[in-house]
Nucleic acid binder design. Structure first.
Length: 245
DNA sequence: TGGAATGTTGGAAC
DNA sequence: CGTTCCAACATTCC
C-alpha cells in the first residue's frame, strides 16, 4: 500500500471531501480527541512522502499507513477503524491499522516540501547536496532516507537501482556525480511511473528487480540480501549493477 | 501454515 | 546525556 505514489492516489481519491464538515469522528486511536474534529470542516488534503495530511482550520491530522494500513471511502471493513470520519448524506472516510497523530504547528514548519519526490516543489539539487553530505552512507540506505527522498520505499529503491545499474551497497560518496544525478532523476521518474501503473493495477507486472529471481538483462540469478543499516531486502544483479566502493 | 513483507517508533542498552 | 539498535505493532499473501 504505502509508498509515496500510493498516498497520492489516496489524496486524489478523497479530494471531493474537501470543504465538507465532519459530523462525527470515532475510532480506536488513542492519540487524538475526536470531539475536536466534530463540527469542523476539512480545508484541504495534502501529502508529504508517505504522510497523508488532513487539514482542519486549527490543526492537521497526520495519517501514516505504515506497512499494513488501509482505507475505505464510503465503505467499511469488518475490523475496527483506527479513525472513522462521517459526513452528511452518510458519506464516510475510514482508516485502518495506521498511525494517527495531530500536528499543531504550521505544516511549512514541519515539512520540507522540496524533499517529497511527488511534490511539485521537489528539488533534485537539494537531494544531491544531502547525498554529498553523507559520503559513507550506502545508497540503499540513502534512498530510503525520508529526509532526502520522502515517499521512496523499498520497491522504488530496488527498481531505481536496477534501472540505473547501481549496486545497492555502493557508497554514496563513491558514485560519480553524473551517475548520482541520474539516480536522483530516475527516482522521480520511476515514482511517477509507479503512480500510473498502480492506478492501472499493473504495478507488479512492471517490476524488473523487486522480488525477481532472474536478471532480465543478463538472465542470471539476482542476488537477494538484507543490506545497509535499514536491513531491507535488496534484489540486484552482480553483473550489470556496478558496485562503487 | 508459518514466515515474511510496500514502515516507523519508542525505549532499552551502552 | 547522546547514539544506536531492536522489538513491537498488525494484516495479508503465498
Amino acid at each position: 500500500m504505502p509508498e509515496g505514489p500510493s498516498i497520492v492516489i489516496l489524496r486524489e481519491a478523497v479530494h471531493s471531501f474537501t470543504g465538507k464538515k465532519v459530523i462525527s469522528a470515532k475510532g480506536n486511536t488513542k492519540n487524538i480527541d475526536f470531539t475536536q474534529l466534530e463540527g469542523t470542516k476539512i480545508i484541504a488534503f495534502k501529502s508529504w512522502g508517505k504522510h497523508f495530511l488532513i487539514r482542519f482550520p486549527k490543526f492537521t491530522i497526520r495519517i501514516h499507513l505504515l506497512l499494513f494500513g488501509t482505507y475505505r471511502i464510503n465503505e467499511r471493513k469488518d475490523s475496527p477503524a483506527r479513525l472513522s470520519l462521517t459526513f452528511a448524506k452518510g458519506e464516510e472516510l475510514n482508516f485502518y491499522t495506521c498511525s494517527v497523530t495531530r500536528i499543531d504547528q504550521p505544516l511549512d514548519e514541519v515539512y520540507d516540501w522540496s524533499a517529497d519526490v511527488m511534490n511539485e516543489q521537489w528539488d533534485s539539487k537539494s537531494a544531491l547536496s544531502k547525498l554529498k553530505k553523507q559520503p559513507a552512507a550506502l545508497i540503499c540506505d540513502a534512498l530510503l532516507d525520508q529526509h532526502i527522498f520522502a515517499g521512496v520505499g523499498n520497491i522504488i529503491k530496488n527498481e531505481v537501482l536496477f534501472r540505473t545499474h547501481i549496486h545497492p551497497e555502493s557508497k554514496a560518496g563513491k558514485i560519480p556525480l553524473a551517475k548520482l544525478k541520474q539516480l536522483v532523476n530516475e527516482t522521480v521518474i520511476y515514482s511517477f511511473q509507479f503512480l500510473e501503473w498502480k492506478k492501472e493495477f499493473t504495478l507488479k507486472k512492471h517490476w524488473l528487480a523487486h522480488t525477481k529471481k532472474i536478471c532480465p538483462r543478463d538472465h542470471i540469478p539476482f542476488k537477494k540480501s538484507y543490506s545497509g543499516i535499514t536491513r531491507r531486502r535488496s534484489f540486484y544483479c552482480e553483473v550489470c549493477q556496478k558496485l562503487y566502493r
